[in-house]
C-alpha cells in the first residue's frame, strides 16, 4: 500500500476472474465491491470469496479496500465486516455514508482489532457520500472518525436525488466537488471523484477527470480497467510541473544558504506557499514513479 490514491478501481466481488486479475492494471487502490454489483442472493458467496482472496493472494504494493453494504439500514453490512475484518484489508468503504454509519463501522473495527490483536486504527475507512444531506454535512462526516482516509463522491445517486441529469460538462457537480475538495483538504484526507460512467468515451473521461483535478480533488474512481491509465496520468504531476517544482526547490535551498527570505525565479516571486507546493509536487512525482 502506498500513500498515492490517484485511481481507485471498483471490481465486482462475485467474479473470481475479475478479482484475481485486478492487480495488473496499475490502480493505486482496488475496491472489491460487495454492494451494488452483487445480487442479494449472492452476498454470502461474495463475502466468503473476497475474504479468501485477500487471505491467499499477494496484493502487496496496492491498497486493498472492500466496499461493504450499509451498516445502519441493511442486514448485510455488519456481516460483511464480521467476515472480512479478520483478514485485515487496508480499508472498508462505507456507501451512503453519514456520521452515524461511520461511527458504527469505526466501533465495530475497534472491537475486532482489539480481539484480533491488530494495531488500533490499522483498518481505515473511506466514506462514499451519495446524498444531498451527506454533501451538506461533509464537515461533520470528515470528523466522524480518525480512521477516515478519504471521502469519495457518488454522483449517480446524488444527481438522481436532485432530479437532474449528469452531463459531460459536469456543471451539476461543481458545488459538491468544490465542497468536497475544501473539506478534505482541511481535514487532511483524500478527496476522490465519482466514476465516469461511459467506459468507451476516453475523451469524456479525460475532460471529467481534468475538471475534478482542477477543483482540488486528489483522485478518481474507475469502474473499468481501461480508465486507470488516464486517471493515473491526469492525477500525476505533469513533466512541466515536475521540472518547475525541481527548479523552485533548488532555488529555495540556494536562497536559504545565502540567508535570503524572498526570491524570484523566472521573474516570478517564490514565497512559502509556492515552495510548499513545489515540495508536494516532487513528493507526488516520486510516489508515482516519475523521475525527479
Amino acid at each position: 500500500m502506498s500513500d498515492l490514491r490517484r485511481s481507485m478501481l471498483f471490481v465486482p466481488g462475485f467474479r473470481p476472474g475479475m478479482l484475481q486479475n485486478s492487480s495488473i492494471y496499475g490502480a493505486d487502490s482496488i475496491i472489491f465491491d460487495l454492494e451494488d454489483s452483487v445480487a442479494v442472493t449472492e452476498k454470502d458467496a461474495a463475502r466468503v470469496l473476497v475474504r479468501n482472496i485477500l487471505q491467499e493472494l499477494d496484493f502487496s504494493g496496492i491498497e486493498m479496500v472492500v466496499r461493504i453494504n450499509p451498516v445502519t439500514d441493511s442486514p448485510f453490512g455488519e456481516e460483511d465486516v464480521a467476515e472480512i475484518a479478520g483478514v485485515r484489508p487496508d480499508a472498508f468503504m462505507l456507501p451512503k455514508a453519514d456520521e452515524e454509519g461511520i461511527r458504527v463501522l469505526a466501533d465495530m473495527l475497534d472491537e475486532i482489532e482489539q480481539k484480533e490483536g491488530f494495531e488500533q486504527e490499522s483498518i481505515k475507512i473511506f466514506a462514499l457520500v451519495e446524498s444531498t444531506s451527506a454533501v451538506l454535512n461533509l464537515c461533520s462526516i470528515a470528523k466522524a472518525s480518525t480512521r477516515l482516509a478519504g471521502i469519495m463522491l457518488g454522483a449517480e445517486d446524488l444527481t438522481a436525488e436532485l432530479g437532474i441529469k449528469r452531463t459531460l460538462q459536469g456543471n451539476e457537480l461543481l458545488y459538491a466537488r468544490s465542497h468536497l475538495a475544501m473539506v478534505c483538504k482541511s481535514a487532511g484526507i483524500d478527496a476522490i471523484d465519482t466514476p465516469f460512467g461511459d467506459v468507451e468515451d476516453r475523451e469524456g473521461l479525460e475532460y471529467d477527470a481534468s475538471q475534478a483535478k482542477s477543483l482540488g480533488l486528489t483522485g478518481k474512481a474507475a469502474i473499468h480497467p481501461r480508465q486507470v491509465g488516464t486517471i493515473n496520468r491526469l492525477f500525476s504531476p505533469s513533466p512541466e510541473e515536475v521540472i518547475y517544482a525541481g527548479k523552485v526547490v533548488a532555488a529555495v535551498r540556494e536562497a536559504e544558504k545565502e540567508g535570503k527570505g524572498v526570491l524570484a525565479l523566472d521573474g516570478k516571486m517564490v514565497d512559502a506557499p509556492v515552495a510548499a507546493r513545489a515540495e508536494k509536487v516532487l513528493k507526488q512525482a516520486k510516489l508515482a514513479g516519475i523521475e525527479v
Binding site: V48, L49, N52, I53, E56
Partner: peptide, 17 residues
Amino acid sequence: GALDYAIRARVETAVRR
C-alpha cells in the same frame, strides 16, 4: 479453471447454504 482460494470459497459457501 478456478484457483484454490475460489474452490475453497465456493465449497465453504455451499456447506453454509
